[in-house]
């Protein structure tokens, strides 16, 4: 090793004498490389290494401690026969679809309304965005209180004299996911609205003028001209919402803690429960690998659209 390096050094020195070649590539701007070490460590060891480690150990029978005792796909078979996991997936699907559609629709409509040169735009924007500054824990606890069946919304309406009124999502397994959805939308739509508003502001004013000269109505201009032009913004929003949905955890812990029963369990919570409470690491690893897989399934088409399309 040292011999080779000496060789190389000598070669470099010879070269310099002859035609002043650059020093060996590895030793060029050493400071930049030194300064990038934390990034390289994070990227390679934590992100790639950590993920690979988890995937690797998902094929073992690790329980209390990680063990290299391979059991093939047994953890996955068990995972997909565990009703709690199945319920988690179904819940996330319901929450995900609703959240995706409603966030996009609400955020775009609000952004479009704010873009109509209205008075008090800054005030409205602050109102719609402030929940985003709050944690999911705070969000979940606040909505848990508002949806409290005795003192919250239901109690209020019943107090008005409508005795049979029933809106108790946090204790009704059928609609508990919508209880979470109300809180999730409250917290997250503001951000997407801001992104959409920025997108709308980025549209050339002349396009609006051209549409007016052409006699296209406002709504039709949005639908036929503006929304197609905002495709990249919508895709960004989609990726953001989707990656947020998969990570859904804190909100559930705070608002329902997975209840009533298992009715609002979600995959992320499954992983953490099995890894850190049930001491069944293998299940946790298998479940988190499934989460990783779902992200890959979402990301690949997006990356393809975003970066594959650009080359043409």
């Amino acid at each position: 090793m040292t011999a080779i390096e000496q060789d190389r050094a000598r070669g470099a020195a010879d070269g310099r004498r002859e035609k002043s070649t650059r020093p060996s590539r590895i030793f060029r701007n050493p400071m930049a490389k030194l300064a990038s070490l934390p990034m390289i460590f994070t990227a390679l060891v934590v992100f790639v290494g950590g993920t690979a480690w988890t995937v690797f150990y998902s094929f073992t029978s690790s329980s209390l401690l990680p063990r290299t005792d391979f059991v093939g796909l047994a953890q996955y078979e068990r995972l997909w026969t565990t009703s709690r996991w199945i319920v988690s997936i179904k819940n996330l699907a319901i929450y995900g679809v609703c959240s995706l559609v409603l966030t996009l629709v609400i955020a775009f409509v609000l952004a479009a309304l704010l873009d109509r040169k209205i008075r008090g735009e800054a005030v409205f924007r602050s109102i719609f965005l402030y929940p985003f500054a709050l944690s999911f824990i705070v969000t979940g606890l606040a909505w848990q209180w508002i949806l409290n069946p005795d003192f919250g919304l239901q109690g209020l309406v019943r107090g008005w004299g409508w005795e049979s009124f029933s809106f108790d999502p946090l204790n009704n397994p059928d609609i508990v996911m919508f209880g979470l959805l109300i809180a999730g939308l409250w917290q997250g739509t503001g951000l997407i609205m801001c992104i959409m508003l920025a997108g709308l502001r980025g549209i050339d004013d002349d396009i609006w003028k051209a549409a007016r000269v052409d006699g296209i109505g406002t709504v039709k201009t949005y639908v036929r001209v503006i929304i197609p032009m905002m495709r990249p913004v919508f895709i960004t929003a989609l990726v953001l919402i989707a990656s947020g949905i998969i990570k859904l955890y804190d909100l559930v812990v705070a608002q329902t803690n997975g209840g009533p029963g298992l009715a609002s369990e979600v995959p992320a919570k499954y992983v953490i429960n099995y890894m850190f409470q049930a001491q069944n690491l293998g299940q946790g690893f298998a479940a988190s690998t499934m989460m990783l897989l779902s992200v890959v399934i979402i990301l690949i088409p997006w990356a393809y659209l975003e970066f594959g399309g650009r080359k043409q």
């Binding site: 051209a210 197609p228 032009m229």
Partner: peptide, 14 residues
């Protein structure tokens, strides 16, 4: 009864 041509063309890109 006017038609207008803009500096940025303002064609509908899609």
């Amino acid at each position: 009864g006017i038609g207008m041509v803009f500096q940025s063309y303002a064609l509908y890109p899609q």
